[in-house]
């Protein structure tokens, strides 16, 4: 089990080593100590390995991740797991702005709170936030799921396309063209499976969630929608 001390090994060397891992590598688990908020830790991995970071990470931790499991035993800076393609990222603390931004796939779990713009421009990523999310979360989100066990800030789902949003707590306000939608048994099944995958199976009552998504009224330019643009 390699332990990588970022006070000793440069971030560049560590990331390059991760990028050089081929399929079937014997080294499948890395523990990172002394991250000290460095940016782009474990960014750009394309291998089925686990990287566990003991401490706080800076911007873009696990950015563009493919296949890997990245665990942050601390909080994460802006853009954690941005543009993730697959794999999973878990933040044991809080996440700063734009968590999971533009993510295409994979699972991002945030045990604490996430700041503004969580899931912005999401393109298929699944995000579960145990705490609350800030303003403009899921802004222009195209696909994927955002589950919030706490509250959501202003303008949730503004200009949303086809992403699915589930919120258990209060929603301060909805953004343009984001509406509440009925939640069916099928939705609850999917939600339950996602929470199970996020390690929260059976912890919450699924009936407490409300579902939000696109009203699809802004999909075409029309003068009647002028006030919404």
């Amino acid at each position: 089990m390699p332990v990588v001390d970022l006070e000793v090994t440069s971030l560049r060397d560590f990331n390059q080593m991760l990028h050089g891992l081929g399929d079937g590598t014997n080294e499948t688990y890395f523990r990172v100590i002394n991250p000290r908020g460095r940016h782009a830790i474990a960014a750009g991995i394309d291998a089925a390995v686990t990287v566990e970071i003991d401490g706080n990470a800076g911007y873009y931790c696990a950015g563009m991740n493919k296949q890997a499991t990245v665990i942050i035993n601390g909080s994460a800076g802006v853009g954690v797991a941005e543009n993730m393609m697959s794999g999973s990222v878990r933040v044991k603390g809080d996440a700063s702005a734009s968590a999971g931004a533009a993510g295409c796939g994979g699972l991002l779990v945030i045990d604490g709170n996430a700041s503004g713009r969580c899931g912005i421009s999401a393109r298929g990523i699944e995000i579960v936030v145990k705490g609350s999310v800030g303003h403009m979360s899921a802004f222009m989100a195209q696909a994927g799921t955002l589950v919030v066990l706490g509250d959501a800030g202003e303008a949730l789902g503004d200009s949303i396309y086809e992403a699915r949003l589930f919120v258990r707590g209060e929603v301060k306000s909805l953004g343009s063209d984001c509406i509440e939608k009925p939640i069916s048994d099928g939705h609850k099944d999917k939600l339950g499976k996602l929470l199970e995958e996020a390690g929260m199976g059976g912890e919450v009552d699924l009936s407490e969630f409300r579902r939000f998504g696109s009203g699809r009224t802004l999909y075409h330019f029309h003068m009647d929608n002028l006030g919404a643009y």
Binding site: R12, A40, A43, G58, Y59, Y60, M64, V78, G79
Partner: peptide, 9 residues
Amino acid sequence: IKIEELREI
């Protein structure tokens, strides 16, 4: 910082 991330990747 974004440029640094792209360089790292």
